[in-house]
Amino acid sequence: MSNVKQNKVISYGLAAFVTGTLFGGGLTLSQMVNPQKVLGFLDILGDWDPALIFVMLGALLVTIPGFHWVQKKEQPFFALKFLTPSSKVIDKKLLTGAALFGIGWGLVGLCPGPALTALVTLNTDLMIFVVALIAGMYAQRLFIRA
């Protein structure tokens, strides 16, 4: 509980739940949760569907000013400090990881947020995908240790 303010544990959990709900709602309404929609966006040689550019645009329209304003604050409401990544290195790990992620994303049309949100469909193929995704995370852990 290191970073959570002492009497704010419940607020911290609630904030995570509410922001998760907004996030999942946004993914659903924008159809990011639909693998065929995502593949249509990535298929620039076919009948290209540009709609997802507007999802990205809408998100950045809020996060660019939003993050700038938030990070000027001394501390978050319910935590002691901001835990933002500090690394600035562009290394082989970053590039290889991003490249492999892109291949997986292009194969199925699902990235982690939409994959979890769409679990509400109880689709069996999606569950298989999510299990494989978690297995991939474990495999990466083993690979780094080796």
Partner: peptide, 28 residues
Amino acid sequence: ISWSLFGGILIGLAASLLLLFNGRIAGI
């Protein structure tokens, strides 16, 4: 386009609020 933009705005709002409330990055 409207639904895409609106969905995107909700996602951006969620990420900004998670940072404001808990100081965390909304990286799924």
